[in-house]
């Protein structure tokens, strides 16, 4: 009898383990599915940017994006830090430009990104925020050279003919930062040479 129970509990434990294992497999699969779906169905927009390179203890080196779209002029002064906002965008020849910022979802067709408020600048009447797709992972030896490359390019270039932009796919509130380009060439290829 006791043996029977032991067999049974062993079985239950194994089934429970299978459930946990499935969950563990589902988590990364769901992440991949969401991202691929966005790449397939989403709208591609180019965001002008300037990268800097920080570290993550588990995920390695990445370059952090400072986007040109980072503030919105508004007379409304009531914003909380870390408040969720909807940033609506226009498509100007493939490049993203800011249309408007709203505290709630609007009934318009423009693409949008959910972002967090950094702070409200009372002096300039500007709402400062950061776009969420700010990490671009790179091979550890390449992150720093990539940042240097962009900085040197920008310094020499007073006429702003060099442009660095991030290619981002947007689909509802999902997004994927697919690649970063300097003058149309992928930053990974530029640094690799």
């Amino acid at each position: 009898m006791l043996k029977f129970y032991r067999m049974k509990s062993k079985k239950i434990i194994f089934i429970l383990f299978l459930l946990v294992a499935i969950l563990q497999l589902l988590a990364p699969t769901k992440m991949i599915y969401d991202q691929e779906n966005t790449l397939k169905k989403g709208k591609a927009l180019k965001f002008l940017t300037e990268p800097i390179d920080p570290n993550d203890p588990f995920r390695g080196k990445y370059i952090r994006m400072n986007y040109d779209i980072n503030s919105f002029k508004t007379k409304d002064t009531i914003w909380e830090r870390k408040q969720e906002i909807y940033v609506y965008l226009n498509d100007s020849l493939g490049f993203a430009t800011l249309k408007t910022v709203s505290k709630t979802k609007l009934e318009i067709d423009n693409n949008y990104v959910k972002a967090e408020v950094s702070w409200y600048d009372n002096y300039n009447n500007k709402l400062r925020f950061n776009l969420p797709f700010d990490r671009f992972y790179m091979e550890e030896s390449k992150a720093k050279p990539a940042e240097d490359l962009v900085r040197i390019n920008n310094r020499r270039d007073s006429l702003k003919t060099n442009i660095t932009f991030a290619m981002v796919y947007l689909n509802d509130d999902k997004f994927v930062l697919e690649n970063v380009f300097i003058n149309g060439v992928s930053i990974k290829d530029l640094v690799g040479k």
């Binding site: 563990q24 992440m31 991202q35 797709f133 990490r135 671009f136 992972y137 930062l177 697919e178």
Partner: peptide, 12 residues
């Protein structure tokens, strides 16, 4: 596995 997927797709 979660961290590698975050890397592949640049999930913030």
């Amino acid at each position: 596995s979660i961290s590698l997927v975050s890397q592949i797709y640049n999930i913030p």
